[in-house]
Design a protein around this nucleic acid. Structure first.
Length: 477
RNA sequence: CGGGGCGUAGCGCAGCCAGGUUCAGCGCGCUUGGUUCGGGACCAAGAGGUCGCCGGUUCAAAUCCGGCCGCCCCGACCA
């Protein structure tokens, strides 16, 4: 028995634990080019589940999918000043094609605002053409200095919604609608509690009027921006000269939004729910919601158990439950228990001679210790019920953890203290952009957001000015 | 780009700091056969390595010296 079986203890070295989990569970592997990542089938299956859920919600709110090119002419990138400033340094640029130097370098999209708005210019003439509610599932490239599997890689997968509207109010409504969808995606499906709010001037997206965010607390008490939605106002329409004739027959610039979530969400799931044994997946996105491990000694038992499991499999299939029957003979049951626990499967069914004899099933939940038995007749009902409970319990545990590590602060000293300890700090804020930078420098923490949920009035923790604005401070990824 | 660490079998590592018959080793995994199987089974037999790359020192280099390359972790930029 070697010592390299499991993963590094989460409490011992969170960072190492995180990469261990990803590599050992075969979610992903390092690509040959620095900063790149191969998403392996088990990890990609999680992404596909996230995609399915998100895509359905987008469609339900009137959005349609499309695909825009990955190559963006350099001149497009330079049209929106703030945008260039924000992205140019981290772009990959193609200078050669077909063996010749290109006349105009092509940027590999770091995000698609520019190319999409160049197209919208062709498509939008009148208010009757609006709104345009397009989403795209794509890869983007950002030449990051420091990368980390799932959280920040040179190339990553995401969805980016790009909408065009006739009024500011409509764009604002859209931006808020989408951040609410992200909240739902995170909380109801990934079981990750989030704080929904607005980004400060210092933290907002390059080229946005407002940026909304969902912020989550990871297992090391750092914050992760899990999804963003921007009200871009008329900035991109102006940069790309996209005007429409409104009802009053006047030319007006179009209003825009953009919003996205990425494969970073998988990193969030790992860091929020994982434990010392490894990955813990919420049933809603787990590639396998259930794993069935058979236990047999004799050939005779094997035949009976296979038959018994076939019956269960058919029922689970019919109920649309994603499961895997691990009947490999080269591994022992004990080995499989550990393996699937490490891989985060929410629910395990153990079927041996005892279960067959008593028409029962042994259940082991990933989120709590211990096992319990249930009747095989009701196996689908029990599985469904347990998956629901697990899903809820993961959310509750994550919420409890966040609350235990969130502090109300009323002075700069208290903020410093809280940031030393780690976690979120909530306090009143009336500082300037410079004050914000100062805080970041001194505490290494940033204002994650101005939560939508506000209450009361108090004194700014830095300036002492009276304000009704509460903000969340935290160190972040 | 700064700081730290690491490149030796598929993976994890020991051996380098006192160069040479403990120098090509260990654990896991892999292959074959058998016994096992309700919490990471055991026995036996096997396969597997340009010691990251280039150069130098030396009778002799995984080991010492110089250069290069790559990766990971920690900081500054970011979803």
């Amino acid at each position: 028995m070697g010592e390299d079986r499991g993963v590094t203890q989460k409490s011992k070295d969170f960072s190492k634990w995180y990469t261990d989990v990803i590599l050992r569970c075969e979610l992903a592997d390092y690509g040959p080019v620095k900063g790149t990542m191969v998403i392996r089938p088990y990890g990609y299956a999680v992404w596909e589940n996230i995609q399915k859920i998100a895509d359905k919600m987008f469609k339900e709110t009137g959005h349609v999918n499309a695909y825009f090119p990955m190559f963006i002419p350099e001149s497009f990138m330079k049209k929106e000043a703030e945008h260039v400033e924000g992205f140019a340094p981290e772009c990959a640029v193609v200078t050669h094609g077909g063996g010749k130097e290109l006349e105009e370098p092509l940027y590999v999209r770091p995000t698609s605002e520019t190319i999409i708005w160049a197209m919208y210019k062709k498509w939008i003439k009148s208010y009757r053409d609006l709104p345009i509610l397009i989403n795209q599932w794509a890869n983007v490239v950002r030449w990051e200095m420091r990368t980390r599997l799932f959280l920040r890689t040179t190339e990553f997968l995401w969805q980016e919604g790009h909408t065009a509207h006739a009024t500011y109010e409509e764009a604002e409504e859209e931006a808020r609608r989408m951040i609410e969808i992200y909240r739902k995606l995170l909380e109801d499906y990934l079981a990750i509690p989030v704080i929904v709010g607005k980004k400060t001037e210092a933290e907002k997206f390059a080229g946005a009027v407002h940026t909304y965010t969902v912020e989550a607390m990871m297992g090391d008490r750092k914050a992760l921006q899990a999804g963003t939605s921007h009200n871009l106002g008329q900035n991109f329409a102006k940069a790309f000269d996209v005007k429409f004739l409104n009802r009053e027959n006047e030319l007006e610039y179009v209003y825009a939004t953009s919003w996205g979530v990425s494969t970073r969400l998988i990193g969030a799931v790992i860091m929020v729910h994982g434990d010392d044994k490894g990955l813990v997946l919420p049933p809603e996105v787990a590639p396998y919601q259930v794993v069935i491990v058979p236990i047999w000694k004799s050939e005779d038992e094997k035949i009976k158990i296979n038959e018994y499991v076939r019956n269960i499999s058919e029922k689970l299939n019919a109920a649309g439950i994603r499961f895997y029957y691990d009947d490999r003979e080269q591994e022992t049951p004990g080995w499989k228990f550990n393996e699937w626990e490490m891989r985060g499967v929410p629910l395990r069914l153990e079927i041996g001679p005892r279960e067959v004899a008593s028409n029962s099933v042994m259940f082991a939940r990933r989120d709590v210790p211990g096992k319990e038995t249930g009747s095989v007749e009701n196996v689908v009902g029990l599985v469904k019920e347990k998956l629901t409970v697990i899903q809820q319990n993961l959310f509750k545990k994550a919420l409890k953890f966040r609350e235990e590590n969130t502090y109300r602060v009323s002075s700069y000293d208290e903020l410093n203290e809280a940031m030393e300890r780690g976690g979120f700090a909530i306090g009143y804020w009336a500082g300037t952009l410079e004050d914000e930078r100062k805080i970041q420098e001194e505490t290494k923490a940033t204002i994650r957001c101005i939560p939508f949920e506000q209450e009361g009035e108090g004194k700014c923790i830095l300036t002492g000015k009276k304000t009704s604005t509460l903000v969340v401070f935290a160190k972040s990824y």
